[in-house]
Amino acid sequence: MILTRLKKHTENVHGRVEQRLPLMDPSLSLDQYVRVLEAMYGFYRPLEAQLRVLLPASGEFGRRSKLAWLVQDLQALGRGLPVALAGKPVLEGRAQAWGALYVLEGATLGGQLISRHLQRCLGLERGCGAAFFCSYGDQVGPMWKTFRQALEAYAEQSGAEPEILAGAGQTFEALEGWLIARTGER
């Protein structure tokens, strides 16, 4: 099953990325949170532009874009949009794009925990600074199920599992590199 292999293939870098984000810290400040949103915007903007080309809007990516929620959150918190953008992972084709989308969609699952923490810690909700982490709201489960089914079908039909794995790994590595570049920490 492709999802099991994706999880195993990316678990180390995924863990490192999570450690770089202070989102579940009990003492999370609004300033720290805004810096995370700015970093995510800087990463998602070029990556989603690439995904729009590789996975046309009529297909799986169209209803899964999260960039507007990042814009909404930054504006709700009185911030402008960051100018600095990450170097996107170089995705070579549709199969690698599916791997990248696995990373972005998987983040919506963790976003459920994060959004509850943001509400408790900072008083932020979907309409007031936490839309990105609330993502699909009560539709996270069904959206994940639909994505999982589509990914499994694509992997089986295309025979492109190595490319899907590579796309997921490259996406996590690019995100980690972007976070390191923004903080200057190794």
Rank of each mutant, 00 (worst) to 15 (best):
residue 1 M to Y: 10
residue 1 M to F: 12
residue 1 M to C: 05
residue 3 L to V: 10
residue 10 T to G: 07
residue 10 T to S: 07
residue 11 E to P: 15
residue 12 N to H: 15
residue 12 N to Y: 15
residue 14 H to W: 11
residue 14 H to L: 04
residue 15 G to L: 08
residue 17 V to Q: 06
residue 19 Q to L: 04
residue 20 R to D: 11
residue 22 P to Q: 04
residue 24 M to D: 03
residue 28 L to S: 01
residue 28 L to F: 03
residue 28 L to A: 01
residue 29 S to G: 05
residue 29 S to P: 14
residue 31 D to Y: 14
residue 32 Q to W: 11
residue 32 Q to I: 00
residue 35 R to E: 14
residue 36 V to Y: 13
residue 36 V to D: 03
residue 37 L to H: 05
residue 42 G to L: 04
residue 42 G to H: 10
residue 45 R to N: 02
residue 45 R to K: 14
residue 46 P to L: 07
residue 47 L to H: 13
residue 47 L to Q: 09
residue 47 L to W: 14
residue 48 E to Q: 04
residue 48 E to W: 10
residue 49 A to W: 15
residue 51 L to W: 14
residue 51 L to I: 07
residue 51 L to Y: 14
residue 51 L to S: 06
residue 53 V to E: 06
residue 54 L to D: 02
residue 54 L to G: 05
residue 57 A to T: 07
residue 57 A to I: 08
residue 57 A to H: 13
residue 59 G to W: 15
residue 63 R to M: 08
residue 64 R to I: 09
residue 64 R to G: 05
residue 66 K to S: 01
residue 69 W to G: 00
residue 69 W to M: 01
residue 70 L to W: 02
residue 70 L to P: 10
residue 71 V to Y: 06
residue 71 V to C: 02
residue 73 D to G: 01
residue 75 Q to T: 09
residue 76 A to K: 12
residue 78 G to D: 08
residue 78 G to Y: 07
residue 79 R to Q: 06
residue 81 L to F: 12
residue 83 V to D: 06
residue 83 V to M: 11
residue 84 A to S: 11
residue 85 L to C: 09
residue 86 A to M: 06
residue 86 A to F: 13
residue 90 V to S: 11
residue 91 L to S: 02
residue 95 A to G: 06
residue 96 Q to T: 08
residue 97 A to Y: 12
residue 98 W to R: 07
residue 98 W to Q: 06
residue 99 G to C: 14
residue 99 G to R: 15
residue 100 A to D: 09
residue 100 A to C: 12
residue 101 L to T: 09
residue 103 V to T: 07
residue 105 E to C: 03
residue 110 G to R: 07
residue 112 Q to W: 13
residue 116 R to Q: 07
residue 116 R to M: 04
residue 117 H to L: 01
residue 118 L to S: 00
residue 119 Q to R: 03
residue 120 R to K: 13
residue 120 R to D: 01
residue 122 L to I: 01
residue 123 G to Y: 04
residue 127 G to Y: 14
residue 127 G to E: 08
residue 134 C to Y: 10
residue 134 C to A: 06
residue 135 S to G: 11
residue 136 Y to C: 00
residue 137 G to C: 09
residue 138 D to R: 13
residue 138 D to F: 12
residue 140 V to I: 11
residue 140 V to G: 04
residue 141 G to C: 06
residue 142 P to M: 09
residue 144 W to V: 01
residue 146 T to V: 03
residue 147 F to H: 02
residue 148 R to D: 03
residue 148 R to P: 13
residue 149 Q to M: 06
residue 150 A to P: 14
residue 151 L to F: 14
residue 152 E to G: 08
residue 153 A to N: 12
residue 154 Y to C: 03
residue 155 A to M: 09
residue 156 E to F: 13
residue 160 A to D: 13
residue 160 A to C: 12
residue 161 E to S: 05
residue 161 E to L: 11
residue 162 P to L: 05
residue 163 E to P: 13
residue 163 E to S: 05
residue 164 I to G: 02
residue 164 I to S: 03
residue 165 L to G: 03
residue 166 A to C: 07
residue 166 A to T: 04
residue 167 G to A: 03
residue 171 T to V: 09
residue 172 F to Q: 03
residue 173 E to A: 05
residue 175 L to H: 10
residue 178 W to N: 00
residue 179 L to H: 08
residue 180 I to N: 04
residue 180 I to K: 13
residue 180 I to E: 06
residue 181 A to R: 15
residue 181 A to G: 10
residue 181 A to W: 15
residue 183 T to V: 10
